[in-house]
Design a protein around this nucleic acid. Structure first.
Ligand code: FES
Ligand code: FES
Lengths: 146, 146
DNA sequence: GTATATTCAGACAAAGATATCTGAAAAGAA
DNA sequence: TTCTTTTCAGATATCTTTGTCTGAATATAC
């Protein structure tokens, strides 16, 4: 079980962060991404495809083709990606699974969870993926050689 | 998609909280639970069965049979239930889905998520299900008539 | 003992998420 | 034009989660 985000969404985030490290406009083919990030090729293809449909990425066909960000990295947050793939239901739903989440019929952790949900939301919107990618310490994102 | 906990786990929590409201040792048959909580009958049966195997519940067959808590409600936390159903992987895994989560190769949100993960863990262990059940404002748990 | 209410166990079905395969379409290079 | 590289699109496969069905075992009530 993946926590918080679906597998698709995790892959999407990993891929977009990788794109954010490239000079603006540079196209990266799918297989350069899967080689680095160990994501199944065709699965990633479908994910990038839907991000393109949502307007987050741009795609070019043919040789020298590939995917690139449709916006400057400074204008994209993790929340944009999460929203595009998993939706924003988590901002509204009860963590214990009750039909609806509101102060009217609160569950036992409604107050506590409410605060934490806000913090998670802040984590997703307060930084742009440009700086996040540059801060990234993981080896997949560091060495320049491919 | 359910956030944080699997559907099974959500159902387990809802059911155990219900049992915690009953006088100690009182047996509650599965269908009394499903009627109140709108959980599919046989699915809940399997869930309660595994909680029994894990030692959280006790079951009795025959008329006047049913499920009851194996421990006093004051000794059970949400974490016991989550651990029994979903496991404790969330306490150790990277929220962006990278292979492992450690300070050695941190992802961009490792620090932030680390704090929030601790808070979520605290939410799960700091209160027992006895008090949580009594605080519960949701109608499923209030009216005594069945 | 017989009937009834219930858990227990396992097989099965349906749905959703994840992953793979194949071929068409498009762009560039020769 | 022809060939190659790559995205795009859709069909299919596999796995996991969720949910259903059936019957056996067990304990109580009669
Ligand atoms: S009602 Fe459960 S989190 Fe709001
Ligand atoms: S490495 Fe991502 S949360 Fe720790």
């Amino acid at each position: 079980m993946s926590i918080l985000f679906s597998r698709q969404c995790e892959y999407a985030i990993q891929a977009v962060l990788f794109l954010a490290l490239k000079p603006e406009g540079e196209r990266v083919p799918t297989n350069a991404l899967t080689r680095r990030l160990k994501i199944p090729y065709h699965f990633l293809g479908k994910i990038l495809q839907s991000l393109t449909r949502k307007g987050l990425l741009r795609s070019e066909k043919g040789p020298k083709g590939g995917f690139s960000l449709a916006l400057p990295p400074e204008d994209i947050t993790l929340f944009h990606i999460v929203e595009a793939i998993d939706g924003d239901a988590f901002t509204r739903s009860c963590v214990l699974g009750f039909p609806e989440c509101s102060g009217k019929n609160p569950c036992s952790v409604h107050e506590t969870w409410g605060k934490q949900r806000d913090q998670i939301y802040q984590m997703l919107v307060s930084r742009n993926i440009g700086e996040m990618a540059r801060d990234m310490k993981r080896p997949e994102y560091r060495s320049k050689a491919h």
